[in-house]
Amino acid sequence: MKKIAIVVIGLVVLASCQEKQRYTQQSPEIDSFKKSIEAYEKADWATMKSFYADTAKIEHNVTKDKAVSIDKLIEVSKEDTKLFSNIDFIDSESEYEMVVTDNGETWVNFWGDWKGTLKATGEEYILPCAITAQFVNGKIVREVGFWNNTKIAMDMQKLSAATTAVDSTTTK
């Protein structure tokens, strides 16, 4: 009986010493993040918002001090859908992972290629991007994303200049 008790205590101690899984490619948080991206692709703003905490801070190509709310992100995304058709992330180029930091924070990392077609010109753009989202109690509380949209900005500037030139020519 003593031997059984010692073995049981040993197993309990051993089990308590094992670390919680800190890296995975399958988790409820990853599933939520995928669904939030699918909602973005479909311009389903209410569903997209449901994955974020009301106090979430979004840092897309900005520093923490310039973070915006989920409502502002949706407002900007709505403007994007006016400019672009076929907004999508290419599934075959998308990767997700979840990590738990040394401080116990849960983050989902995403790498993928965003694709959109500019309605004014029909030109298709593909932008590699990296987005990471911190989850607390199943909701995104902070999201940080990086991508280079310089080509789009330059093309939009050229388009605007060409439109202004045409407008000034026709008014003379």
Rank of each mutant, 00 (worst) to 15 (best):
I126M: 12
D167P: 00
E41G: 00
N109W: 08
T132Y: 08
I70L: 02
E143I: 00
I152A: 07
G122Q: 11
T106D: 05
S92F: 06
Y40D: 08
E41C: 05
D71M: 01
V166C: 09
Y96D: 00
I126T: 15
S92I: 07
K64M: 11
M48T: 02
N137E: 15
V108G: 02
T164W: 08
V76M: 14
F110H: 12
G104V: 05
L159F: 10
A56N: 01
V144E: 08
N137Q: 12
S85W: 03
S94Y: 01
F84W: 07
P28C: 05
W147H: 11
V99M: 09
F135Y: 10
L127G: 03
V144H: 01
N86K: 13
F89I: 14
K139Q: 09
F135C: 01
N137Y: 05
V144C: 02
D71G: 07
V136T: 13
A56C: 07
N86L: 06
Y125N: 06
L83D: 11
K158L: 13
S50N: 04
A39W: 05
F110Y: 11
E143Q: 13
D65W: 07
W107A: 04
S77D: 08
E95K: 10
W111G: 08
T121Q: 09
N103G: 08
I140K: 01
A165G: 05
E105F: 04
A161L: 14
T63R: 10
N103V: 07
K66D: 11
D155I: 06
D102N: 12
K82Y: 08
S85C: 05
W45N: 05
D91A: 14
D155H: 12
K34W: 05
S32Y: 03
K115T: 10
